[in-house]
Amino acid sequence: MTEFEQPWLEKYRPSVVKDIVGNEDTVGRLEILAQQGNMPNLILSGPPGTGKTTSVLALARALLGDSFKEGVLELNASDDRGIDVVRNRIKAFAQKKVTLPEGRHKVIVLDEADSMTEGAQQAMRRTMEIYSSTTRFALACNQSEKIIEPIQSRCAVLRFSKLTDQQVLKRLQEVLDMEKVSSNEQGLEALVFTAEGDMRQALNNAQATHSGFGFISSENVFKVCDQPHPLLIRKLLHECIDSKFDGAHEIIEQMWTDGYCGLDIVGTLFRITKFEDMAEPLKLDFIKEIGFTHMRVLDGLDTALQMGGLVAKLCCLSHKFRGGKPPPPRT
């Protein structure tokens, strides 16, 4: 029996503010805050996997030190956070007596605050003011507009944006080095591609690939994440640009028999096309066509015929774009 393996996500979650990847401006500010104390009420908003919860917890740890356990109340969407919890638990915590370092406050961390009901948020606003001398709030959410205006007015809003691929890659490499996992460059690239700026996803995929195959290569990563291989999709795209319907359709057929559904194919095709190096007007036309196909697939028209039709249309578009001339030879 091997010992229980902790998720890398938790194992390598930064516990100090300065270790947090990306969003340098915001994190730098939080770092100073951690040194100075007197944290204002905060709203941290941004897409998933960008380090909102991590930074709040790291900040609280830096502020409260040893009394972190008593001085922090963390509630997330899995906890009941109806109006009664706000009235009882949060208020009770705000009134609780805790010995803290000089000039520090208790911290209430509300994760996924955008899923709190409006009533619960309304009930919170006076609490935030009455106990502001002893308790501060930190709300993490994906969309700050889901937080009602009066609460927004009481907080400083910090925005987190998606991490860049370089940032994800750097951190990923650090973790893989520490875990002593063998990998190749394509594998890392594939991990970054599937993560889409989401650190959590990157780490989870890396761990899944590692425990499944032991070696991180692009094939293994895409097998684990179960997406059509981007190289295959890129080949498909190039066939379309060159107006070679036969080749393109062959790829589609192969993917279809591999069991990928239209959503997988179209979604990956879109992400490849976005950043592909091709003539811009043509790219726009392609994206339009892909978008409409995606819409149809979402409406339930998920057939091989749709995929074939999409490829055919893309071929026609590029044919028309070139004015009927044969494609230039590809290097």
Binding site: G37, N41, T99, E102, G103, H105, S132, S133, R154
Partner: peptide, 18 residues
């Protein structure tokens, strides 16, 4: 009595709105 916390709320650690 209701809002008690041993940490003395010094001027430094107040919210500026207060």
């Amino acid at each position: 009595a209701l809002v008690s916390n041993t940490a003395p709320s010094t001027q430094q650690s107040l919210l500026w709105t207060d």
